[in-house]
Amino acid sequence: MKRLLVAFLLVVVSIPFMLKADKSKPRVNEVAPVLPYSYSQVLLSSPGLRSPAADLLFMNLCYLTGNDVFNRWKERKFTEEEWKRLIENVEVIEKLDPYYFDPLYYLGSYVPWKVEKNRELLLKINSILLHGNQMIKDWRLPFFVGFNYFYFLNDKVKGAKYLKIASQMKGAPFYLKLLVPRLYAESGKIDLAIAVTYEELKRTEEGAVKKELKRRLKALLAIKELDRAIRIYRNRFGKCPSSLQDLVKSGIIRAIPEDPYGGKFYIEKKNCTVWTTSNLRPVKKSTSSR
């Protein structure tokens, strides 16, 4: 008993030394850097543990991103180089565990906003997402790709293409189906937009969507009609009409059609194409969103 007491006292006595030593211990810089991981090294150092290794890498990635988000390292945010490494790490994770969805979700939903100026990285993100989509049949992956093209890369055609793929996948929300033709129409590919709408109309069962698609089709057909009229006008007069009224005046069309969304058609002078003030969205109540 006495001995135990003495032992305990000795431990207590040792504490100040430990504290002293701990304070004066040499330390490395506290900032946790984003390390580049190599697929083959991770793979070889974790036999039979591909998935847990992927999990741990993703945990590390979440932790680092959390630091960035909550500004834990006050002075500094991730550099572009570090974002590049993060993106490559997601690629490693997906090689280790090709069915792991969460890292791709992180990559598609969060990272593009951080590298929006860097075209190369955005394309890299898209290629990783598309690769993941080969294994994981989730509509959000092509959706993110489409969104990146559309929003960050300003490539509306490619954006529409991937959104269309997304909209056709299981679990995709119905508004995607409406969004796709509109993107095509906005990019001036009116025929494509009409074709897509037709196709959707054929496949859709749901009443509300069907009604919406019909309205969309009507508007698109009107735009196409007006576009054709403008082409004839240009052939005849060699210049872009200053307004849609000119088309009526010159007798190419009888009247300006009505926008089923309640907007007004007009001529965009820059490309000499037709568009509507409604932007193909109901002017009064809004049911579809961009």
Binding site: D55, C62, D102, Y105, Y106
Partner: peptide
């Protein structure tokens, strides 16, 4: 519990 997203998978 540490990871974001599908904790059951991990």
């Amino acid at each position: 519990n540490v990871v974001a997203g599908d904790t059951v998978k991990v």
